[in-house]
Design a protein around this nucleic acid. Structure first.
Length: 258
DNA sequence: ATGCCCGGACGTTCCGGA
């Protein structure tokens, strides 16, 4: 079972790239972030021509998440429904072939100390509580998405340049770690302990050409699934060419259950 | 070529992204 996460940075601007990528890579599950469109503008071809199922939680202009799956998606949940008045579409969950799939677009956080930073930290706290309330770490689950935090310094090309930002500072990493501590494993690190593997590069200042990147897009799994990780990858080539997203798809292949 | 930011909006510049 191949599960991939991709911040596509507008499903409208990336329409052809999405269809081509799905056709070439044939994932079982693709979690998308930053759709930037309402649900009705999600490309119909994904379902009608490529025979995928789609569960979307869109929003005009900003945010928006979706699960794309070869097989039906059941028990779909949109948003955390935790009593917080939050209009931002950043979480969708569904069940595919017995695996609970949670797709998140964690807030970026803007500048340290800003209202956006406060919202980001609070959002991480809400995500931890949502997992505690709605999910079970002893069951097969993947938490996929753009976490807008580098887990550690191996995931940053220029530590000195980024160490005090909302993506790399200790408080942000602790917020991510609190979610991981619920019962998740970073699947990429099961197969690769080296620095220099990134999933995002800034559009500005030749970020990709200079490999000034970060790994902020992850597929986390609970232990029953993490035990079945066969292969991990980041599709760096998808960052190349005409009109790429600033993020590359990152994914994992799980072996069949024993 | 991987090349000096990009997508979106009641746009004509500004906001948000990371």
């Amino acid at each position: 079972m191949k599960v991939v996460t991709w911040n596509i940075n507008s499903v409208r601007a990336r329409h052809d790239r999405l269809l081509n990528w799905l056709d070439r890579n044939a994932p079982d599950v693709l979690c998308l972030q930053e759709l930037k469109v309402p649900d009705e503008e999600f490309p119909l071809e994904v379902e009608e021509e490529l025979d995928y199922y789609v569960a979307a939680f869109g929003q005009k202009t900003y945010n928006g998440v979706a699960i794309v799956s070869k097989t039906p998606i059941t028990d779909v949940v949109r948003g955390m429904d935790d009593g917080v008045d939050d209009p931002q579409s950043r979480l969708i969950a569904g069940t595919v072939r017995g695996v609970r799939v949670v797709c998140v677009y964690v807030p970026n956080g803007g500048e340290m100390g800003s209202d956006k930073w406060t919202y980001k930290l609070a959002w991480y706290g809400r995500l931890r509580r949502w997992l505690e309330t709605h999910c079970d770490p002893s069951q097969p689950l993947v938490l996929c998405g753009d976490f807008n935090v580098t887990p550690d310094d191996r995931d940053v090309d220029r530590v000195d340049e980024w160490k005090d930002t909302v993506l790399c500072n200790a408080e942000a990493r602790a917020a991510l770690q609190s979610v991981v501590d619920w019962g998740l494993i970073d699947t990429f690190r099961l197969k690769n302990d080296q620095p220099g593997f990134y999933s995002w590069w800034d559009y500005r200042q030749l970020g990709f050409a200079k490999n000034n990147g970060m790994r902020i897009d992850m597929v986390y799994a609970t232990k029953p699934l993490a035990d079945r990780v066969a292969e991990v990858f980041i599709d760096r080539d998808e960052r190349k060419g005409q009109r790429p997203s600033d993020h590359a798809p990152a994914g994992v292949i799980f072996s069949p259950p024993a």
